[in-house]
Each structure stands twice: as structure tokens, then as C-alpha cells.
Design a protein around this nucleic acid. Structure first.
Lengths: 237, 237
DNA sequence: CTAATAGTGTCTATTAGACATTATTTC
DNA sequence: GAAATAATGTCTAATAGACACTATTAG
């Protein structure tokens, strides 16, 4: 290797293309609660490889345009859904020789939570919302079945010890709706009293003053406190 | 964009260097318990950028040599420590415009746990083990201060609800030694009875039959059961 | 015997789960 | 009134934390 007298001199002669770099993409597992089910968004690929296959939304990091990885994720998400400020969380990075036929590639997987009110489907591209069971039966591009599995694992495990589902609901919601969100994601019922004690203890919600009625006694509407971060409990639900 | 008749045709004409790709590295936060403290391994950089600065061990993904990202991590770890089968876990991926003066770069951060018996220091390069407090005071290369912070956060939080510290001890150990490992990592004392109940409930340890003595009554030695995976508790310690 | 460390017994406070009860609405 | 949904009261079982106690070694 050459030697340089200073960092500046080194950088001047540094050429990024002297080395073989992995392809680098960001993929998203976008979740929403639709028709009382947890669903995720798939898009049909318009280009090779895996042309016409269903896949997770995502794409290359654009180093000209994106300040950082999360910006890439949010940009891709807005392209497909129109939503600008969803809840986004990095899950894991997958990189190996075989996952992309173009060569050694890595993808940074994020999951996003969208309120059903934001889960529109009128994009120009072919997109669709599918349940987890439906997704499993579809032949997806790349290793996207594995990515979905990891994203769901992360979502499920986190829901059991945090207030994460507050971010998959619209701006205001009832406690019954919040409980239902937990139940759909965890795929099991939870006790109402225990659930409310738990939510109460996090102190993240405030009453809006409004009520919502659904066939019986009207329920109080709640919203997240300003600057409410996800709360983590000491015990699983 | 051109159109292709088949995936094969597309791949033939695909040139990886047509696009600007981020630099991709793997960095490691290697933890060990030395002198009753949690320490991590730093290496002095021999090349630009940040020549002669202390940094986390790591380096470029070698797409000719490495089958996947974890192999890259384990290869780097073996280069610096000689240890071939440590506990390794992916933490998070950091990617942005500014973290590397050479350009848009991303690094996949792993942490590794080494038994103190494996924590040798006689590599050819300049390496050293430092406490967390010492690391904070050193001017590290790139954004490695941030990476260390994230790795410690992950380690600490995971220790509070799992059996992770079993992997930072030698093959056999006493329950007192295991408890001390928890205490050092979490930086607080834990109750002996509650701790032993908890470890017992995970059912991951078996007695070796041997004893170890340390000034008083001899203590039973334990080892991990074959194929023992980390256990996750429903409640934090 | 004392000192040191290993290991156990047991009480208490907390709290999740179960489930019954009351409250408020529409019809 | 009945039916539906919201909200609360209360008992019980599980268990983490506290801490006292017993056990086994060395000297």
C-alpha cells in the first residue's frame, strides 16, 4: 500500500471505485391493521431481477439524495404510501453472496407502522395489502420471505413489552381499539382490566374530551401526549 | 431505462459500477470482563483516514472472501483476538454522508462477548482493553463513540432480561461468578436468592461435578447444556 | 473456635390474570 | 325493560426482593 503524508493527501487520491462494494438497499415491511387483520404492503417489481414478482417496497440507497439510511427508508415509504411521518424502526441488516443474482448485496430492513386511515392503495404502481398468512403463500423476490419473518418476530416480541401499538392507530382512539390492536398483532386475547392498568401506568395518553360510540356506552377518546416515546415495561404482557 | 427480454439478459449487461455505492464496513464492539470491569477492545488505526487514532476493530466487507456479513464480523474478530467461536450479535447499521471522510458510508455494528481467558492482547497490531469510562475519554475514529454507546445500551438492556452473560464466561463457572458477571455489566448488585431462582428456572446449566474453592465453602462448577440458546425472561431482573 | 464463601428458607410486597359488577348508551 | 359496550372492583396466584439462616471449607 502507498503511504501518505496526511489525511488530506490520502483523501485526494482515494477512489471509491478501486474496491468491489456490495450492492446496498433498504427494504421496508410496512404494517397496518386492516379489516381486523395485521397486513403488510407488497409491491410488484417493474424491473429485473425478479421482474413482475411481488416484493417488499424498497430500493437502492441514493448517496446523492439521502442524508442517511433512515431518510432512504422514509423516502421509499412515502413513494409507496404518500405518508410522510410514520413510525419507522430499523430491524436488521442482511448481507450475503446469494440473496441477489446481481452479486454480493446487503439490505437494511426497517419496519413501519401505518394507521389504517393512512393505508391508501391508489399508488401508480401495483401494490397490495396482504395478511401474514397470504404473504407466506406468495413467491416473493429475493429473500423477502425471511425479511418478513424477521420483521414480524421483532414486531410481535416488542408489542409484548411496550406501547408500540399506539403508533399503528390514528391520532385519536379508544382504549378498546388500542386493546384490539394488541390482540390482533399478538394473535391472542388479553384481559381488559390488566390491559388498562398497564396502559395507565405508562402515562402516555391524555383524554381528548371527545367520545366515540359503538353500539353501547360511549368510550372516551385518547391521544398520545406530545413527545410521547414508546414505553418499555419490566414485564411481558 | 433499457428493457430486457429476460432476467438472464438483464444480468449479462448489468454492471455493478454503473451506480455510486456507499462504502460498507463491519465494526465490532468486543466485550470482556477483565479485572472485575467490563472492558472493550480498541485498535490503533495504521492507515488513513484517522491514522493512529484508536477505533473499534472492523473493516471492509470483502465480497470475494466473505459469504455473509456475520462471517466478515467473525473474520475481523479472529484477526484481532485469535478467537474463532465467540458469541456474536448484530446490533445496528449506521449509514450517512458524514461519518467517513471518504464519502457516504455505512457500517454494520456487531457486539461480541469473550471470556477473560480468551481476551489475549498479543496481536501484532496495537490493541488495548479499556473500561467504558476510559473509552469515553479517548478521541475515537469516525462515529465510534456513538457505536460504543449503542452496543453498551444493547448489552445492558439484554442482560436485564436474558441469560446472555453466560457467554462472557469461560466454559465452566460458579453461580457466584455468573452473578458477578451480571453485576459488573449492569453496574449494580443483585439479590443472591432471587438471582439463583432465576438462573435455575432457565434450565440451561448442568453441574460438571467439579468444585472450585475461593477461601470458604467450595462452590459447584456449572457448564452450559449442549445447544443451549440464550433464554429470555418475561420480566426484567 | 472464627472467617469466609456457598447455598437455602421464608416472609412480604407487588402485580398480572380472572372474572364479577356497575355504568351509560340505543332500542 | 333488554342488549351492547365501557369502565371499575376485587380476589387469587405467582414471584421478585429482602434478609436471615444453615452448610462447608481453611486456618
Amino acid at each position: 500500500m502507498e503511504t501518505f503524508k496526511s489525511e488530506k493527501e490520502f483523501l485526494t487520491s482515494y477512489n471509491i471505485h478501486d474496491f468491489d462494494l456490495p450492492l446496498t438497499t433498504v427494504d421496508l415491511c410496512i404494517f397496518s391493521l386492516l379489516d381486523q387483520s395485521l397486513k403488510l404492503l407488497l409491491v410488484r417489481r417493474s424491473d429485473y431481477p425478479y421482474k413482475d414478482c411481488w416484493a417488499l417496497p424498497g430500493g437502492f440507497v441514493d448517496i446523492k439524495q439521502d442524508m442517511n439510511l433512515e431518510v432512504t427508508a422514509i423516502r421509499k415509504l412515502e413513494q409507496k404510501t404518500g405518508v410522510k411521518t410514520p413510525y419507522v424502526e430499523q430491524v436488521e441488516t442482511f448481507g450475503n453472496q446469494t440473496r441477489d443474482p446481481r452479486g454480493w448485496s446487503m439490505t437494511v430492513l426497517y419496519f413501519a407502522l401505518l394507521a389504517n386511515s393512512d393505508a391508501i392503495t391508489d399508488s401508480g404502481e401495483e401494490v397490495c395489502w396482504v395478511t401474514l398468512a397470504e404473504a407466506k403463500k406468495i413467491e416473493l423476490a429475493f429473500d423477502h420471505q425471511d425479511l418478513i419473518h424477521k420483521a414480524i418476530d421483532r414486531l410481535r416480541s416488542k408489542v409484548s413489552y411496550s406501547t408500540l401499538p399506539m403508533h399503528i392507530l390514528p391520532a385519536t382512539f379508544t382504549l378498546a381499539e388500542l386493546q384490539k390492536a394488541y390482540e390482533i398483532i399478538m394473535d391472542r386475547s388479553v384481559d381488559k382490566k390488566a390491559f388498562r392498568r398497564r396502559i395507565d401506568s405508562a402515562k402516555l395518553l391524555v383524554e381528548t374530551g371527545e367520545m366515540r360510540q359503538d353500539g353501547g356506552r360511549p368510550a372516551k377518546l385518547f391521544k398520545l401526549k406530545k413527545s410521547a416515546e414508546t414505553h418499555f415495561y419490566n414485564r411481558s404482557i
